[in-house]
Simulated scan of single mutants.
Amino acid sequence: MAFDADLLRKCADPSLEPAIVEQFVRQGGSPDPLAVTVRSGNRIILVSPAKTSEQALALVREHVRKAVVRVGVTQFPAGIGIRDASELNPALVDPCENIRMGTALFGKVWRIVFKWYGNPTSEEVMPQVLEDALHAWQTGQFEGAAVFSAPDPGEPKAAKQRREDVPQLSPATAPAPSDASAVDPNKAAIRVDLSGIGGKAP
């Protein structure tokens, strides 16, 4: 799948390392920002491909309370946090906003799985953590828990220590944070090397 690397860097939630973002979008997402996937149980419901953002949003609204609907670059679960289809935000089909929302939610899923593994520090276990996090993203479940509605466990202490060990810019040269997430310790990056995965889907 071909993805816009610059768009991922610009729009992805800063709580995730770029390597995790790339693997997440490549394996769990879609290169089509208007992609709408509808599932009922184990069955995929075929829908006409959307050619405009309006058509994509209309498809989501048509199916969202009747089936599991995923949308956009990150295949974001469209029904999360809404009670009625009228509450759906057009941002779902905006590439940058979809990446922002999708990576933020996947970041929580990643941290849930990472904590279950005991906040490991070994690089060898990271591919398995990612595989399980991707499976949890696709199913909405991990070890019997609904990951999208589960509380965010926050950043592990080990990951925080690794982040603090990275040399910091002096106040005179450090760029000002653009938003609150840039200084929120619960949204700090987990630094892992996933280069050895090779893009293999779970």
Rank of each mutant, 00 (worst) to 15 (best):
F3I: 11
A5W: 02
A5S: 13
A5G: 00
L7V: 05
L7Y: 02
L8E: 01
K10Q: 15
D13M: 00
P14M: 07
L16Q: 08
I20C: 04
V21K: 09
Q23S: 12
F24R: 09
V25L: 09
R26G: 00
P31C: 13
L34S: 08
L34I: 10
L34M: 11
T37C: 01
V38P: 12
V38A: 09
S40E: 15
R43V: 11
I44K: 11
I45G: 01
L46N: 13
V47P: 10
P49L: 08
A50Q: 08
K51V: 06
A56F: 10
L57D: 01
L59Q: 12
R61W: 00
E62Y: 09
H63N: 15
A67E: 14
V71N: 06
V71F: 02
V73L: 15
G79L: 05
R83K: 15
R83W: 03
S86M: 06
L88M: 04
P90F: 10
P90Y: 10
A91R: 13
L92Q: 05
V93G: 00
D94K: 10
P95M: 10
E97K: 14
N98M: 10
I99A: 03
I99M: 05
R100E: 01
G102T: 02
A104Q: 11
G107H: 05
K108A: 00
I112A: 02
V113N: 03
F114C: 08
K115P: 00
Y117T: 05
N119K: 00
T121W: 02
S122C: 04
E124G: 00
V125F: 02
V125L: 09
M126H: 08
V129D: 05
E131A: 15
A133T: 03
H135F: 04
G140A: 01
Q141K: 14
Q141L: 12
F142I: 00
G144V: 07
A146Y: 07
P153M: 06
P153I: 05
A158F: 04
K160Y: 08
R162Y: 01
R163S: 12
L169K: 11
L169C: 09
P171Q: 13
P177H: 10
P177I: 04
P177C: 08
A180H: 11
S181K: 13
K187S: 11
A189Q: 15
I190F: 05
V192C: 08
D193R: 10
L194S: 06
I197T: 09
G199M: 02
K200W: 07
P202Q: 09
